[in-house]
Structures are given as structure tokens and as C-alpha cells.
């Protein structure tokens, strides 16, 4: 393989693997939006809280499995508390009210995390070597491959859950038509609770992987900025869309930065994904895989 081609492949592979990490965060948004129509701005804060709780427990001497189980329990409680204390009392309020409520929740979680665990930064070692290996002149990160495999596993589990379990089918029914689901006897509050718990678990997985990548510190909550163009592109209510859009955004922003950046000043990675997402929005407002809303008038 020529050096230029190897470099191109490396850029694309690196971008795709980064895209998987973006998709991991985006899936947390999708789960909530799909079943309750709420854009959960607190997802980034939940990612931070999960990672900070886990690393703080490890630093206090808990073994890895115990810390993981305890953090899982904490995230279940966090998810349930948000749903019960904030969103359930606001049922039937306009979407903007619900969005603002999650914005408030994000600040409360960040403040609570600092109160509980302090303001220091932490290293998070998941025991996965991050030295690259060479495949025909292309360096591939072991850690990123592991993260991609874990994300793939999580998507597979979620797909099985949605297809073959009663609760999963109920999720889909609620996502399709909440009123019809209610008429059919589904208990919406229970489903909302379950989906917030699931979102807390996704936040834990994303928090561990992103925490190992960036270190556990308060800017971890900013990873949501990477998930937003993915959501716009993939659709807010499609897990498959989040994955595919994550891959597209990851590869596109890396290619743009490396090949286009030098001609227009560099540092374009931060906004080029939004440009792509906005352009796509003009063509297909519901995103790649999002459901187009059709209303009878």
C-alpha cells in the first residue's frame, strides 16, 4: 500500500472508530427521545456522573466488579429519580418545558457530582492497552477497537431487547403512538421509568469508555457536543441511525480536518459536522432513519 493510501485508510479508520464513540453518547439521547419525546440535555451530565462515581469508588479501594455493580445501582437510582421527581410531574407539558427541565437536571447533576466526589481530575484505567498495532502500515488503536466492539455488543443487546422482550415491544409501541399504547393497556409511567434506567446504564458504558479516553473530569459532560450532529443526521429516534450517523460524522470530520483544513485555516473539525448535519436536515428533516411524522388534519 502506498504511504498516501495508507494514510487515507488510517484517517478513515480512525474516524470510524471515533464515530462509534459519538454514537455511544447519541444512543442515550435516542432511548429517551424515542419513548417520551424528550431531548434529554442531561445525558452528558449523566455520563460524567457515572464515570466519576465509578472512578471514585475504585480509588476508595473497591474492586472493579463491585465498583461497576455499585455504579450501576447508582445510575438506576439517578435515572428513576429524574423520571419520578422531574419529568413525571411535567407530563403533557410542551416539549420546550421538558427540554428546559432536563437542562436544569444537567446542572443539578454536575453540582451534585462535585459535592459528592470533589473537583479533582482522575485517570481511569480499564486495563486495555492503548498502544497501537500496525496493519500493513496503518496504525489501529486497541482501545478504540475494544470500544467499538463494546458499542456493537450494546447495540445488539438493545436490538434484541426491543425485538424480543415484552418491555422492549412496549417501548416500541409507546414510541409509535403513546395514546394507542395507553389504550392497549400499557403502563406508560412504568415504561418511562424503565427507559430512564436504560439511559442511565448507557451513560455508564459511555462514561467508562470516554472517561478512559479523556480522563474523568468535568469537561466529560461536553461529549454531548459530539453527539448532537450525530442525532441530527441519524434521526432522534433511531438507534441504527445513531450508529450509522456516528460513523459518517466521525469519518467525515477527520477527512475534512486532514484534507480540507489546511486550505481554510484548520480547526474545522468542531463545526464541520454541524454543517454536514444542517445540510442534511434541509434535505431530510427527520434524519437518515428518523420517523417522518405524518398528522391527519
Amino acid at each position: 500500500m502506498s504511504p498516501d493510501l495508507a494514510f487515507l485508510v488510517e484517517v478513515v479508520v480512525g474516524g470510524l472508530l471515533s464515530g462509534v464513540m459519538y454514537a455511544l453518547v447519541a444512543i442515550g439521547f435516542v432511548l429517551i427521545y424515542k419513548t417520551s419525546g424528550v431531548l434529554n440535555f442531561a445525558q452528558g451530565a449523566m455520563v460524567l456522573f457515572a464515570a466519576l462515581t465509578f472512578v471514585s469508588l475504585i480509588e476508595r479501594g473497591l474492586p472493579f466488579p463491585a465498583a461497576l455493580a455499585a455504579t450501576l445501582a447508582v445510575m438506576v437510582v439517578v435515572g428513576l429519580t429524574i423520571e419520578r421527581a422531574v419529568l413525571r410531574p411535567l407530563v403533557n407539558q410542551p416539549p420546550i418545558t421538558l427540554f428546559m427541565a432536563t437542562l436544569g437536571v444537567a446542572y443539578v447533576i454536575e453540582g451534585a457530582a462535585q459535592l459528592a466526589w470533589g473537583t479533582q481530575v482522575h485517570a481511569l484505567d480499564l486495563g486495555i492497552d492503548d498502544t497501537p498495532f500496525d496493519v500493513a502500515g496503518v496504525l489501529v488503536s486497541r482501545f478504540d477497537l475494544f470500544a467499538a466492539a463494546l458499542a456493537g455488543l450494546m447495540v445488539a443487546l438493545l436490538t434484541l431487547f426491543f425485538r424480543f422482550t415484552r418491555t422492549g415491544l412496549a417501548f416500541r409501541a409507546v414510541a409509535e403512538d403513546p395514546l394507542a399504547a395507553l389504550n392497549a393497556g400499557l403502563r406508560l409511567p412504568r415504561i418511562w421509568s424503565a427507559v430512564w434506567i436504560a439511559s442511565g446504564i448507557v451513560a455508564l458504558v459511555a462514561g467508562l469508555l470516554w472517561g478512559a479516553r479523556l480522563g474523568v473530569q468535568f469537561s466529560l459532560s461536553l461529549v454531548v457536543l459530539k453527539a448532537l450532529p450525530v442525532l441530527v443526521l441519524g434521526g432522534f429516534d433511531s438507534i441504527a441511525g445513531a450508529i450509522v450517523a456516528g460513523l459518517i460524522v466521525g469519518a467525515a470530520e477527520k477527512l475534512a480536518e486532514v484534507y480540507l483544513g489546511p486550505f481554510i485555516g484548520g480547526g474545522i473539525e468542531g463545526w464541520i459536522a454541524y454543517v454536514a448535519a444542517l445540510a442534511f436536515l434541509l434535505i431530510k428533516p427527520s434524519g437518515l432513519f428518523g420517523q417522518r411524522s405524518v398528522e391527519r388534519v
Binding site: 474516524g15 479523556l214 461536553l222 486532514v258 473539525e269 463545526w271
Partner: peptide
């Protein structure tokens, strides 16, 4: 001189450029 967009939590493309 290579810019990293704020906050800098993703730098794959910058470091690939550096590698080249």
C-alpha cells in the same frame, strides 16, 4: 501550527497530521 477546536476532546486528525 495545528489548531485543536475547543474543548479538544477529540484530536485524532491533528495527530495523524503530525504523524505525516
Amino acid at each position: 501550527q495545528i489548531e485543536v477546536p475547543h474543548p479538544g476532546n477529540e484530536q485524532q486528525s491533528q495527530w495523524l497530521t503530525i504523524r505525516r
